[in-house]
Protein backbone atom coordinates (compact mmCIF):
# COMPACT_ATOMS: atom_id res chain seq x y z
CA UNK A 1 0.00 0.00 0.00
CA UNK A 2 1.29 3.38 -0.94
CA UNK A 3 -0.33 6.76 -1.21
CA UNK A 4 0.41 8.61 -4.42
CA UNK A 5 -1.03 11.54 -6.30
CA UNK A 6 -3.69 10.81 -8.89
CA UNK A 7 -1.57 12.46 -11.59
CA UNK A 8 1.15 9.86 -11.04
CA UNK A 9 -1.15 6.93 -11.77
CA UNK A 10 -0.63 4.92 -14.91
CA UNK A 11 -3.32 3.99 -17.42
CA UNK A 12 -5.44 1.04 -16.23
CA UNK A 13 -4.12 1.39 -12.69
CA UNK A 14 -6.71 1.11 -9.92
CA UNK A 15 -6.76 2.84 -6.57
CA UNK A 16 -8.81 4.05 -3.65
CA UNK A 17 -9.17 7.73 -2.85
CA UNK A 18 -7.57 8.54 0.51
CA UNK A 19 -8.09 12.28 0.60
CA UNK A 20 -9.21 15.27 -1.43
CA UNK A 21 -7.53 18.41 -0.28
CA UNK A 22 -9.52 21.14 -1.95
CA UNK A 23 -12.44 23.34 -0.93
CA UNK A 24 -14.76 25.61 -2.85
CA UNK A 25 -16.04 25.02 -6.35
CA UNK A 26 -13.44 22.49 -7.51
CA UNK A 27 -13.82 20.46 -4.33
CA UNK A 28 -17.58 20.57 -4.70
CA UNK A 29 -17.51 19.46 -8.34
CA UNK A 30 -15.18 16.58 -7.60
CA UNK A 31 -17.35 15.38 -4.70
CA UNK A 32 -20.65 15.90 -6.52
CA UNK A 33 -19.44 13.50 -9.19
CA UNK A 34 -18.89 10.86 -6.54
CA UNK A 35 -15.18 11.14 -5.93
CA UNK A 36 -15.02 11.02 -2.13
CA UNK A 37 -12.56 9.36 0.25
CA UNK A 38 -12.90 5.58 0.08
CA UNK A 39 -14.06 5.54 -3.54
CA UNK A 40 -12.37 2.98 -5.76
CA UNK A 41 -11.65 3.80 -9.37
CA UNK A 42 -9.51 2.88 -12.36
CA UNK A 43 -7.61 5.20 -14.66
CA UNK A 44 -9.11 4.56 -18.04
CA UNK A 45 -6.78 6.68 -20.12
CA UNK A 46 -5.69 10.14 -21.05
CA UNK A 47 -6.60 12.53 -23.83
CA UNK A 48 -4.29 12.62 -26.85
CA UNK A 49 -2.38 15.52 -25.30
CA UNK A 50 -2.01 13.54 -21.98
CA UNK A 51 -4.50 15.84 -20.26
CA UNK A 52 -7.30 15.54 -19.09
CA UNK A 53 -7.38 12.10 -17.53
CA UNK A 54 -10.41 9.77 -17.77
CA UNK A 55 -11.28 7.60 -14.79
CA UNK A 56 -13.82 4.85 -14.40
CA UNK A 57 -15.71 5.38 -11.15
CA UNK A 58 -19.07 4.16 -9.80
CA UNK A 59 -19.83 2.66 -13.21
CA UNK A 60 -19.32 5.77 -15.33
CA UNK A 61 -16.46 7.66 -16.92
CA UNK A 62 -15.31 10.96 -15.50
CA UNK A 63 -12.65 13.22 -16.90
CA UNK A 64 -10.67 15.84 -15.06
CA UNK A 65 -7.56 17.86 -15.71
CA UNK A 66 -4.21 16.79 -14.31
CA UNK A 67 -3.98 19.97 -12.29
CA UNK A 68 -7.32 19.05 -10.71
CA UNK A 69 -6.23 15.47 -10.09
CA UNK A 70 -3.31 16.95 -8.16
CA UNK A 71 -5.60 17.55 -5.18
CA UNK A 72 -6.57 13.89 -4.98
CA UNK A 73 -4.40 11.41 -3.09
CA UNK A 74 -4.86 7.75 -3.86
CA UNK A 75 -3.99 4.51 -2.13
CA UNK A 76 -2.54 2.04 -4.60
CA UNK A 77 -1.05 -1.41 -4.28
Amino acid sequence: MAVINMREMKDNQSGKISSIKVEGELGRRIRDMGLIPGTEFTVQGRAPLYDPVAVRVRGFTLSLRNREADYIDVEVN
Binding site: E25, L26, R29, I30, M33, T61, L62, S63, L64, E68
Partner: peptide, 11 residues
Amino acid sequence: PPTPFVMELPP
Protein backbone atom coordinates in the same frame (compact mmCIF):
# COMPACT_ATOMS: atom_id res chain seq x y z
CA PRO B 1 -6.91 31.52 -12.95
CA PRO B 2 -8.80 28.66 -14.71
CA THR B 3 -11.99 26.89 -13.41
CA PRO B 4 -12.68 23.15 -12.92
CA PHE B 5 -13.12 20.88 -15.94
CA VAL B 6 -14.57 17.78 -14.13
CA MET B 7 -16.89 16.34 -16.78
CA GLU B 8 -18.71 13.08 -17.46
CA LEU B 9 -17.95 11.16 -20.63
CA PRO B 10 -21.41 9.69 -21.24
CA PRO B 11 -21.69 6.23 -22.79
